[in-house]
């Protein structure tokens, strides 16, 4: 697949909805097509966060390995979802594992490349930050709901 093939994919992706053609072209310059087989890791806890991913099709678990317990899944991501925001902030290290639950095709965007482009073009940086902030808020809200553990019900039920 060539860079020309990636451009329409990014342009049509809801995450980049409303971005100028010029900005999309810059992103395409940092993008490449990748695939992960079932069980493969997109990224691993503690490693350098030098990419982020747009899932084209497949399923990816955000996991953490808990000593003596094994891996715990926090959230499952699917087609169209974005994986990874650790590349945005120092120290640029992954806080969780992202593992393909099945064969997953994705577009990866190079973090060094993007960070440089954003420093040169703050408008691009702002457009990206707006989109990442919205996504992070959505994930945080979902995590808060998960914390509520609402199917457990209060303890000491008697009715």
């Amino acid at each position: 697949m060539t860079i020309h093939d990636l451009e329409p994919i990014l342009r049509e992706h809801p995450f980049f909805n409303g971005m100028s053609d010029e900005h999309v072209r810059i992103l395409v310059g940092c993008a490449k097509n990748i695939r992960c087989n079932e069980g493969d890791f997109f990224c691993r806890f503690g490693k350098k966060a030098d990419e982020f991913y747009i899932i084209r099709n497949g399923k990816v678990n955000i996991e953490i390995d808990i000593p003596q317990q094994g891996s715990m899944t926090i959230q499952t991501l699917e087609d169209g979802d974005i994986v990874g925001w650790s590349w945005l902030f120092p120290p640029y290290k992954w806080n969780f594992d992202a593992r393909a639950l099945q064969l997953t095709r994705a577009i990866s965007l190079d973090a060094d490349c993007l960070r440089n482009k954003c420093e040169l073009d703050h408008d691009l940086g702002y457009e990206l930050m707006k989109r990442f902030s919205a996504m992070m808020m959505e994930r945080l809200q979902a995590t808060r709901l998960q914390l509520l553990d609402f199917y457990a019900g209060p303890a000491g039920a008697k009715g």
Binding site: N61, I74, Q75, T76, E78, A142, L145, Q146
Partner: peptide, 8 residues
């Protein structure tokens, strides 16, 4: 299967 709240 999937992990995450139903609203996702």
């Amino acid at each position: 299967g999937n992990v995450g709240v139903v609203t996702n």
